[in-house]
């Protein structure tokens, strides 16, 4: 049986890259492997990572979701506005943003799979729609929640074995989504959508429903990421948290998710997230600021797309 085969078994070079990077980083700087720094690197990837998992699923279905950055912002603002001080408000501050994220995904999904809208432009439009709405809601001001409940804060700040809870949430999601994509009917159908949507339809796959579900999942995951940001900071400038869709897209592509659909795995995206986290960590240690990091991300995305398209053309 050949190795580089069906999408859920497709072997990407991202894991070896991660290994080499980790070894390289620890050789270059001694404290890299310290438990504190490892925890920091792991946590750094969590927010983008959760967004990237959703992006991966939409991409496997053959479409794009560039509205997720705005959804992250919406959820973070909303969670704080709901002022999670006691049990009920904490539950609401987690559930309502996630539900709203799912609704945004639903609208995206309807536009793309029902109406046949171009998914890149439609979700960019949605991005600005949501950002505008959120900023209008808070008049561009900071939002803050005083005395957030213990549970809400612990989502991202409490630690188990020195590692923040949010990291476990991310790992749990990676496992759950991996199983979903590789071993359930739904996951199989998402791969079929990305492979050949007309073939999937003729084979009896409910393509519209399945496709919409990918967007709903993506929206809910992005909102969850926003809730985690809220729990981490408690006080935020909405204009400062944005643009998560781009590193998420970069991570998905770096992990081998095909831009034309049908290929990719959540676990590989997670590996790519850590690759980026290690690079960012090293760049931060070396004191490179946001603009340079932006530039590097663009280069990494381009290089990754080019590499995989070359690899596929060769096989």
């Amino acid at each position: 049986m050949t190795a580089a085969s069906t999408p859920w078994r497709f072997v990407t070079p991202i894991w070896p890259v991660l290994l080499v990077l980790v070894i390289g980083a620890s050789l270059l700087s001694g404290p890299f492997l310290s438990p504190a720094n490892i925890a920091a690197v792991l946590q750094q990837g969590v927010i983008t990572g959760i967004v990237a998992l959703g992006m991966t699923i939409v991409l496997i279905g053959g479409q794009f979701d560039l509205s997720t950055g705005a959804t992250v912002m919406m959820a973070a603002v909303m969670a704080l506005l709901l002022n999670p001080a006691d049990g009920t408000s904490t539950a609401l501050a987690i559930l309502l943003p996630v539900a709203l994220g799912g609704m945004i995904g639903l609208v995206n999904g309807l536009a793309v799979y029902r109406a046949g809208a171009n998914s890149i432009v439609a979700t960019i439009g949605m991005q600005f729609l949501v950002i505008g709405a959120v900023l209008a809601l808070v008049s561009g001001q900071h939002v803050r929640a005083d005395n957030m409940s213990e549970i809400f804060v612990s989502l991202s700040r409490a630690r188990l074995l020195g590692i923040p809870y949010s990291v476990y949430i991310f790992l749990g999601l990676v496992i759950a989504l991996s199983v979903m994509m590789s071993s359930t009917v739904f996951g199989r159908h998402v791969y079929a959508l990305g492979g050949d949507i007309e073939a999937a339809r003729r084979a009896g796959v409910k393509v519209v429903r399945t496709g919409i579900a990918t967007y709903v999942i993506s929206g809910m995951l992005a909102a969850l990421a926003g809730v985690l940001i809220a729990s981490l900071v408690g006080n935020l400038d909405p204009t400062a948290i944005r643009g998560y869709e781009f590193p998420a897209l970069t991570a998905a592509v770096l992990g081998g998710t095909s831009l034309t659909g049908g290929v990719g795995r959540p676990a590989d995206t997670a590996a790519a997230i850590w690759v980026i986290a290690v690079i960012t960590n090293v760049m931060t240690i070396l004191n490179y600021q946001y603009p340079v990091q932006l530039l590097v991300q663009g280069v990494v995305l381009t290089a990754a797309v080019a590499f995989y398209s070359w690899q596929r053309a060769r096989s």
């Binding site: 536009a111 793309v112 432009v121 960019i124 949605m126 949501v130």
Partner: peptide
């Protein structure tokens, strides 16, 4: 910002249809 975003969204939906 909302208006332009919404306009673009609506435009591509109409184009898709």
């Amino acid at each position: 910002r909302m208006t332009i975003g919404g306009l673009l969204f609506a435009l591509v939906v109409v184009e898709g249809l």
